[in-house]
Simulated assay, not measured.
Amino acid sequence: MKMCIACGMPMTAIADYPLCDISKNYCKHCAHADGSMHTFDERLAILADFMVNKQGIDSEIAKQTAYILLKKLPAWKRKI
């Protein structure tokens, strides 16, 4: 089973991949409509927004937490 390099999501079905392209190493949630991967800043904003809206976390704490979580993932280790 592959894990998304950008968010850590397990990718267990073809539908989990962007445009159902199993050669990608990131999931459909980390991709633009054209199948290209989100940037770090886009992923950071999306994850922080999720934490605020779905988990009720303060926005500044959500941004800090999202940053800490993302920097541990393969896609972002070199970029930070």
Rank of each mutant, 00 (worst) to 15 (best):
C4L: 02
A6Y: 06
C7R: 09
C7K: 10
P10F: 06
M11H: 02
T12H: 11
T12P: 00
I14Y: 10
I14H: 07
Y17A: 12
P18Q: 05
L19D: 10
C20V: 03
D21K: 05
D21W: 02
I22G: 03
S23N: 14
K24E: 12
K24Y: 03
C27T: 07
K28L: 14
K28V: 15
H32W: 13
D34H: 12
G35R: 02
G35D: 05
G35W: 05
M37A: 14
H38K: 10
H38R: 09
F40H: 07
L44R: 06
L44H: 09
L44Q: 03
A45P: 00
A45Y: 02
L47N: 09
L47K: 10
L47F: 11
L47W: 08
D49N: 13
F50E: 15
V52C: 03
I57R: 01
I57M: 13
E60H: 00
I61L: 11
A62V: 01
A62H: 01
T65Y: 07
T65F: 01
A66W: 00
A66V: 00
Y67V: 02
L70N: 02
L70W: 02
L70I: 12
L70K: 00
L73I: 05
P74M: 15
W76M: 08
K77A: 14
R78F: 08
R78E: 10
K79I: 14
K79R: 09
I80P: 00
